[in-house]
Computed example of a mutant assay.
Amino acid sequence: MPSLVTAVAPAPSTAALAHFEHSLQFETDCWDVHDALSSGQPDFVLLDVRSAEHYAAGHVPGATHLLRGKMVESRLADYPADTVFVTYCAGPHCNGAQRAAMRLAQLGRPVKIMIGGVTGWVDEGFALTPPQT
C-alpha cells in the first residue's frame, strides 16, 4: 500500500524540471538574497512591505521600506523600468510579499518574492538591523 507521499505519483522528470525552473522565475530565497547583498552590488531592490512598526523593529539590512498601498508609478519613477524588485514580509504565514509582487507586476515591473520573509532570514542565522528608536 503506498504512503500518502507516493499515493499520487510524482510528475515525469520533464514536467518536474519545467515546474521547478518556472517557479524560480517568481521566487528567490533568503540565502541567495544574503549572498547578493553581501557582494555590495546587488542587481535588485529589496522591498520590505511590512508595517512601519515592524520595519523599525528590525529588517533585512539594505531593504527599502515600501508599503503595497504606496506602490504607485510616481514612487517608482527613480528606478529604471528593468529594475528587479524582490519583496518580503513577515514569513510563510504572511501573503504581503505576494500581494506587493502582484502590485508591482500590475505596474509592469519585474518582481520576485523572497520566500521565508523575515522568519526565513532569521532561521538562516542572518542578522536584522537593530531596532530603530
Rank of each mutant, 00 (worst) to 15 (best):
V111S: 08
H65K: 08
M102S: 10
R103D: 04
A97P: 02
A9E: 10
P92A: 11
V49A: 00
L104Y: 05
W31I: 15
A15Q: 13
P10I: 06
S39N: 04
S51M: 05
H59G: 05
P131T: 08
V86Y: 01
P42M: 10
P131Y: 06
Q132M: 01
A7T: 05
D78W: 02
Q132G: 03
P12W: 11
A52S: 11
D43Y: 11
F44T: 07
F20Y: 15
G108W: 02
H22C: 12
A81S: 14
A7Y: 10
H93Q: 11
G40Q: 09
C30F: 12
P92Y: 03
D123N: 15
C89W: 01
T133R: 11
D35K: 15
L107I: 08
D29L: 04
G117L: 02
A63H: 03
A16W: 13
L66H: 03
F26Y: 15
H54I: 09
A52D: 11
C89D: 04
P61K: 06
A81T: 15
A127R: 13
L4I: 04
P131E: 02
R75H: 13
V86T: 02
L4K: 05
H19A: 15
H19D: 14
G91E: 01
F26K: 06
D35F: 14
A105I: 00
Y88H: 09
N95W: 03
T14C: 04
S3V: 06
I113Y: 01
T64M: 12
T6C: 02
T14P: 00
W121Q: 06
S38N: 12
L47E: 03
E124Y: 10
Y88C: 00
V33G: 07
W121V: 11
S39F: 07
A18D: 14
A97L: 02
A18Y: 03
R99T: 00
C89G: 09
A77R: 13
Q41I: 07
P130N: 02
L66F: 02
P12H: 12
R109E: 13
G62Q: 05
Q41T: 15
A77H: 07
D29R: 08
L17F: 14
P110S: 10
P42H: 04
L37K: 03
V8R: 08
T64G: 01
H19I: 09
R103Q: 13
T133P: 15
D43W: 05
L46Q: 03
V84A: 10
V8S: 12
H54K: 10
H19F: 15
D43A: 14
S3P: 08
A15H: 12
P12R: 11
M102L: 15
G117N: 07
K112A: 06
M102F: 12
W121H: 03
G40H: 02
H93G: 07
R103I: 05
L128P: 04
K70I: 00
R109M: 09
P80G: 06
P2K: 09
A57S: 13
V118Q: 13
D78F: 07
A81Q: 14
W121K: 07
Q106Y: 06
M114W: 00
A81L: 12
Q98Y: 10
K70F: 11
L17A: 14
T28M: 05
Y55D: 01
D29N: 15
V5Y: 14
P42Y: 08
D82W: 14
I115L: 11
S39Y: 00
L4M: 08
G62D: 12
L37N: 03
M71F: 14
W121L: 11
P110R: 09
